[in-house]
Nucleic acid binder design. Structure first.
Lengths: 343, 343
DNA sequence: ACAGAAAATGATTGCGCTGTCATTTTTCGT
DNA sequence: ACGAAAAATGACAGCGCAATCATTTTCTGT
């Protein structure tokens, strides 16, 4: 329905502002998007008109006309997992005070769901995309490869990244933790892991290889479950570990929830930590260092990953191909605390 | 630039599908949006054409033409806070298998930032909006009141909700917890709170009123900080509490992070819980019940809030005015565990 | 003061879709 | 088998903005 007369309730448009300011619509558009190419005089008139009318641009119209948006898509496998909460914080800090805003997609550890989200996000013509793994479906990967916007893959660092990547060597991090247990004199280390997504699986494999190479591998000390990770699950897994391998003297947990749960279960069983059981955690979220005893952990650079990812993305959006180092290894750091410190 | 010949790389449009299927564009549009009003024959042709061309609708064009989107905005004050992670989960479960998708905005406990996000979200013509408080700025509130879409305010339950609301009585919940401490025989209860956003402030006030009414109020046992809540902060606050009121015999923590931190600090100080110090937590996230000793807590219905909020919103989007009970009180439940159970 | 370059501004058109209303086809009762 | 009602389909225009290219204004050096 073509409506010549504008109803009062309608939001003002560019044209309204233009008329109010006595300039053309395109000048208003330019005043908003690149004020530096508009004369001082026009800019002031337009800004005043925008103020008077309470004008807000319509992102849909802008997206349609320009074929792009100010949206940055961020795909994470979980919102409950504190690991990604930290990544998010890093990302948010980086978009702050830019014209971009972040849209989060939660694919709940389902690659298929992730593929759907990639398709959905791309249909919205985002300015850029951050994805939390390198484990896309083949079709998901193809979509990323042919995406018309820059893409950053975070967390892992693996061959054949689609465009850019920021992360650290997860296997090296696990190895570092396992080595530490050996250094502390533990000889029968176990491994606890939940969820068993591809990344968890790779870490487990890293542990297996390391343990085997050092002659301390015991398959009955490796306890996993496909269920989600939680503090309660950490307790259950430790329980299972002790029932099938009572001689276990240390345990490497695939994340902090499990480690805290294991610590509590040890306490309930009156198993002394670190004397009878060493506990080493992975990620090192805030709570771990405040446990009693404080948990030794491999700290992963989650927040920095978020920061660097958004940094690279924004640079690449500003000018395609401008980012030199397209693959950043941020490393990991072993935080030695009481839970493995035995006399 | 009008381009008559379509470049290969371009995404197919409705018109392309229409031509491929031998129908008009509007029929394709209808096949996608309301297949029931299209004939079996046409629908099949269109679906085949969509499949062949790999067509994906352009949401920007759709938004522009129809003046609405399938986006549901969800404003939360924090993504780190597990409380909102649970709410999110409830919401996500509800939009699953609908045509809607959730866009999250994080205003980091800043009402001003929240106002900006409300404005930004509204400019995108969302189908509905969920906001996590009743503490908007006056302008933020005005925006919500005049929003052209349904709005649900969650968590709190207060007079003068803008449109719909789901939550529980936070003050009643605090009172329940405080009453429990008295019932257990604790007579000098303290209160620990961080962040001190308006909601935390109201809970503190609730505690004050209750304690005063029961003759157990001690202002020096109320320890707060404007800094964010964390496990470490729980330890610090307890430390401060003991230094300025050593006779404190119980502590009500404004959330689980603080409670866990307080528990650990008590352990470090060799203060026996629950004998010398009772600890009661607020919210009851998963980890609390697995601590040693397990933490007594007022469980808040976070996930259910998310579920009910999205339920109401979707019903209201489907048909304005169709929701009967526009203000739901989901209550709270005291979970009594070891941290307050003394002989 | 003037030509030429640079800066500022504007007219036009189309992005891809859906609302509206008109037209065609099908269905149904008698 | 016929007309009326209902169902299905289509033509057209416009949503609000930005890309393009043309035009006007301002600035520069001599």
């Amino acid at each position: 329905m073509g409506r010549k007369t504008r109803m009062i309730s309608d939001r003002p448009t560019l044209a309204d502002v233009a008329q109010e300011a006595g300039v053309s619509a395109i000048t208003v558009s330019r005043t908003i998007r690149s004020p530096e190419i508009v004369s001082e005089r026009a800019r002031r008139k337009v800004e005043a008109a925008i103020e008077r009318l309470g004008y807000t641009p319509d992102p849909a119209a802008s997206a349609l006309a320009s074929r792009t948006t100010s949206t940055i898509g961020l795909l994470v496998p979980s919102l409950t997992n504190n690991v990604f909460a930290d990544v998010l914080r890093g990302v948010y800090e980086g978009v702050e005070s830019t014209r971009f805003f972040v849209q989060i997609g939660n694919y709940r550890y389902s690659a298929l769901h992730e593929e759907g989200l990639i398709r959905n996000f791309l249909s919205q013509k985002p300015a850029g995309l951050i994805v939390s793994s390198t484990d896309q479906t083949p079709e998901g990967r193809r979509l990323l490869e042919t995406a018309p916007c820059p893409v950053v893959q975070i967390m892992d660092l693996r061959d054949g990244a689609v465009d850019m990547s920021v992360g650290f060597d997860q296997v090296a991090a696990v190895r570092k933790a396992a080595q530490h247990l050996l250094d502390c004199g533990y000889r029968r280390p176990g491994f606890l892991s939940a969820r068993m997504d591809p990344r968890a699986q790779r870490r487990l494999n890293g542990f297996r290889d390391f343990a085997a190479a050092n002659g301390v591998l015991g398959e009955d000390r490796i306890i996993t479950t496909p269920q989600p990770s939680s503090v309660g699950m950490g307790g259950h897994l430790l329980e299972q570990l002790f029932s099938q391998a009572p001689d276990t003297d240390a345990v490497l947990c695939n994340n902090d929830d499990l480690a805290v749960g294991a610590l509590m279960e040890a306490k309930r069983r009156h198993v002394a930590v670190p004397e009878q059981l060493g506990i080493c955690s992975y990620n090192d979220i805030e709570m771990s260092r405040h446990m009693v005893p404080a948990l030794t952990a491999v700290a992963t650079p989650r927040r920095e990953i978020g920061q660097r990812a958004i940094e690279m993305l924004l640079a690449e959006i500003a000018e395609r191909g401008s980012v030199r180092d397209r693959h950043l290894d941020l490393g990991s750091e072993l935080m030695i605390r009481e839970s493995t410190r035995r006399a």
